[in-house]
């Protein structure tokens, strides 16, 4: 068994490359999904009906669709629209679109729990539209939604593993290749599991930092 781990260690550059891909994919898509989700949340809570209906439809569709199937559709579907994407970009796009819906729903839920007075004061002092959202509404919202957003980031890390199916060289894919070449399944996949666990610890540290900022203002 120790020998197996030695084999994995010998292949560590492959493993680390996979880890790096997972990390970059997760960070980029989490950030993009949060920004786009904040914009989509504006549509979800709009005064007029039309944007709400469209946004709600999109969010509900993504929430009821398994990510792997959606990734397949992006991967196979985009070329037919004339967009040539390699599997890395297809994976990134799939993660971003899918999680934009989830982030929007999270922010909408958090917004419903916020007291209305500070936002009203913002309007009374002349803040409007995007400025109102960015300077008055969004910051307390993000502070309050920290833990839930953190949870979703962990989901993103785990969803990235599905992309091994479209041959994206992320962490699970790396472990699989080491396994199939050297027949060390336990060592290879346990190493991957530990690396995923460390990534989650990283996310949770970030969430705690946001939690401390929130506590200072609570």
């Amino acid at each position: 068994m120790i020998h197996d781990f030695g084999v994995v260690w010998a292949e560590r550059s492959l493993m680390l490359n996979g880890l790096l891909n997972t990390l970059i994919l997760s960070v980029l898509s989490a950030f993009a999904a949060l920004v786009l989700g904040a914009l989509l949340a504006m549509l979800l809570t709009h005064k007029t009906k039309a944007p709400v209906v469209v946004a709600r439809g999109f969010v509900d569709l993504m929430r009821c669709t398994p990510f792997l199937l959606f990734a397949y559709i992006v991967y196979y579907g985009l070329p037919s629209l004339g967009i040539k994407f390699d599997n890395w970009s297809a994976g990134l796009v799939a993660l971003i679109i899918y999680n934009t819906a989830y982030m929007a729903e999270i922010l909408r839920g958090a917004a419903a729990a916020q007291p209305p007075e500070p936002a009203e004061a913002g309007i009374a002092f002349g803040f409007t539209g995007f400025g109102l959202y960015r300077r008055i509404v969004l910051p307390p919202l993000l502070l309050a939604a920290g833990p839930v957003v953190g949870n979703q980031v962990i989901q993103i890390v785990k969803d990235s593993a599905f992309l091994t199916i479209i041959a994206l060289p992320e962490l699970t894919h790396a472990a699989s290749s080491i396994q199939s070449r050297h027949y060390v399944p336990f060592a290879a996949f346990i190493s991957a599991v530990i690396l995923y666990w460390l990534l989650c610890l990283l996310v949770e540290t970030g969430v705690s930092a946001v939690g401390r900022m929130a506590d200072a203002r609570r």
């Binding site: 962990i154 890390v157 785990k158 969803d159 990235s160 593993a161 599905f162 091994t164 199916i165 962490l171 699970t172 472990a175 699989s176 396994q179 399944p185 336990f186 996949f189 346990i190 991957a192 599991v193 995923y196 666990w197 990534l199 989650c200 610890l201």
Partner: peptide, 18 residues
């Protein structure tokens, strides 16, 4: 803690091969 951090694909491959 470990299982909540592990993607299902990875867990599945681990069990199936290991």
């Amino acid at each position: 803690s470990l299982l909540r951090a592990t993607p299902i694909v990875t867990l599945l491959l681990l069990l199936f091969f290991a």
